[in-house]
């Protein structure tokens, strides 16, 4: 099962993130980032918590939940729904593709039985794509959580996946 964030944790985390980055409109992205990092996604319940701490009409800062949702949904590294325990981000950019990425993503899909953007029933895997990770010298490339795999071929896929519990 996919784990959802708990209300108390959310408040505490927002508190910390706002303290760290400042209760400012231009701190919104770093704050969202902290939350996304901590929970693996941004729970909607976090948005009013952030809004409450930054909204300051006296200083001309007017923030609504819609502003935050709008920003949170824009960026690819943010997720608005819980993801699996392990998140695979496959680079689907042209350089990796030309160097054999097409076969690798097919192998990943077959191995996991997931379409791109899906999370497995047991909550173990999410299969996402990403734009260029900037390690094209060793393409095709994918990330499993924070681990980068480069020069991958399709027959290495099962072996790599097997490393994750």
């Amino acid at each position: 099962m996919v784990q959802e964030a708990k209300a108390l944790d959310i408040v505490e985390l927002v508190e910390q993130a706002v303290a760290k980055h400042g209760a400012r409109r231009d701190a919104v992205i770093p704050i969202l980032n902290e939350i996304n990092q901590a929970f693996g996604y941004i729970p909607t319940a976090a948005l009013p918590e952030i809004r409450r701490r930054i909204h300051a009409p006296a200083e001309g800062v007017f923030l609504a939940d819609s502003h935050l949702y709008s920003a949170a949904s824009f960026y690819q590294l943010f997720s608005l729904k819980p993801l699996g325990r392990h998140v695979i981000r496959f680079c689907e950019s042209a350089p990796c593709h030309v160097m054999g990425g097409r076969q690798v993503i097919q192998a990943l899909q077959n191995e996991l039985g997931l379409e791109i953007g899906e999370t497995s029933q047991d909550g173990k895997w999410s299969l996402l794509t990403t734009s260029c990770l900037g390690v094209c010298g060793v393409g095709p490339v994918f990330l499993v959580d924070d681990d980068i795999y480069g020069n991958v071929t399709s027959d290495q896929v099962p072996e790599i996946l097997a490393r994750y519990k």
Binding site: R24, R25, D26, A27, V28, I29, P30, L32, N33, N36, H67, S70, A71, F74, Y75, Q76, L77, F78, T130, S131
Partner: peptide, 26 residues
């Protein structure tokens, strides 16, 4: 220092500025 959050368009300077201001990078 400011970390982006995954948007190619933020390489465009005015989108980058919007993003720095805490908004969508448009």
């Amino acid at each position: 220092p400011h970390a982006g959050a995954g948007a190619y368009i933020c390489g465009e300077e005015t989108a980058l500025i919007e993003s720095l201001e805490g908004k969508r990078g448009m």
